[in-house]
Amino acid sequence: MTTTPTAPDAADTAAVRRAISSTPRPPRPGPLSAALTFGWRGMLKVKHVPEQLLDVTVTPVMFLLMFTYLFGGAIAGSTSAYLDYTLPGLLVMSVLFTTVYSGVSLNTDLTKGVVDRFRSLPIWRPAPLLGSLLGDSVRYVIAGTVIIVVGVALGYRPDAGVAGALASLALVVVFSFGLSWVFCVLGLLLRTPNAVMNAGFMGIFPLTFLSNVFVDPATLPGPLQAFVEVNPISVLATACRSLMAGEPDGTAIVVSLVVAAALALVFLPLTTRLYRGR
């Protein structure tokens, strides 16, 4: 047991009575204020549990190094040519992997009962959900930035410079907002945080590999190629490549945004409904 001997490890009944007799009830906070407070909570968690962030940034960096140096020459003729091709895709992968953790942390909250306290407060119902996604967006930005910085360190130079990198990052983060609701639904349906993690990666992992993140779909057999081309992750990776290259592919960008909006439109109401019912 960790108790500090210097402090009185006991409640002071008189002080407790003073404390509870002295509070007028403040007005309820607005929806935005409540959501921002939950966003603050998410950021505190990033601060106190940085391991979570490590998990999601180390894997993509590992992939970046492995694919570039191991397969780069074989796939694209040279490691630098392959880095040019794959980095925007790895940015997509890195941030999308992070979205699984939105569901994991939601499920963790539920298993620990802290959500019961939030739900017994007179606050706007979706505030905890929206707020934790605001906090998660900090994680998305960090995960994306790590990949770009490591890429630049390895010699990656986007034609559109910093603006291109920022635009790609922004697009990926917006897409992640939509996708994260899918994992929130998983987080509400499954029993343990581990189950959410496994199910989440079971979905996102093959989807990421069966896309144009690592290889040019032109080299793939027909049916697989057809799938890869309609895979939204391919579209998003294409959009990011075009932004990095300074030649924005309007169709890919719009399709990415539409997919994100559609995911949010379906899974956000489902999330709030499931959350209410728990």
Partner: peptide
């Protein structure tokens, strides 16, 4: 009303102070 649960419903990954500030903010302070 307020609720004190069977499982201590505070956030384990935050400090004691942060837990109370969080609730104060959510209650409109």
């Amino acid at each position: 009303v307020s609720l004190t649960g069977q499982l201590a419903s505070v956030d384990e990954d935050l400090t004691g102070c942060e837990n109370l500030v969080l609730l104060g903010r959510l209650l409109g302070l």
